[in-house]
Amino acid sequence: MSQSENTPHTSIIAQNCEKVNTKITSGASPSTSWVYSDLVKEHFLNPCNFLMGDEAQFACDAIGVVGNPVCGDQMKMFLVIKDGKISDVRWKTYGCASAIAATSALSELIKGKTLDEALTVGPETITAYLGGLPEHKVHCSVLGHEALAAAIANYRKKP
């Protein structure tokens, strides 16, 4: 159990996301006052598939990382691969709201896909899925696919 499961946030952590039905549980400000789209906001407030607690405890087949804390964004993807498909995925992200939302969105987009299918998910797909991002945010916060590519490359290098 991670520490955060004991925090008041537990109820807004949805690990298996159905964004269509997910209700945002807090909302001091109306969506019009938010700089990002509603879907970005939802993925930021209720991110899907993030790896809670110690990453060493999560058994996975491949890990990939991209970014640098000095630049303000870093993503790490953890893949469980069965029969050539991504059967499960977790991630960790250090970064801003759009970085968290974009990694969450990516994790939803690649689940169940073959490795080659997953590699076709790029920044445009992620951005479109999220209903757009401020232009200046795209190149620095939509990096998760690079971590995914690194994870897949690491996996394929394995003997």
Binding site: S4, P8, F50, M75, K92, T93, Y94
Partner: peptide, 13 residues
């Protein structure tokens, strides 16, 4: 404190 704990839990650092 819970916000910081949550972001730290999510963080790569």
């Amino acid at each position: 404190p819970p916000i910081i704990a949550r972001l730290r839990d999510m963080s790569t650092i």
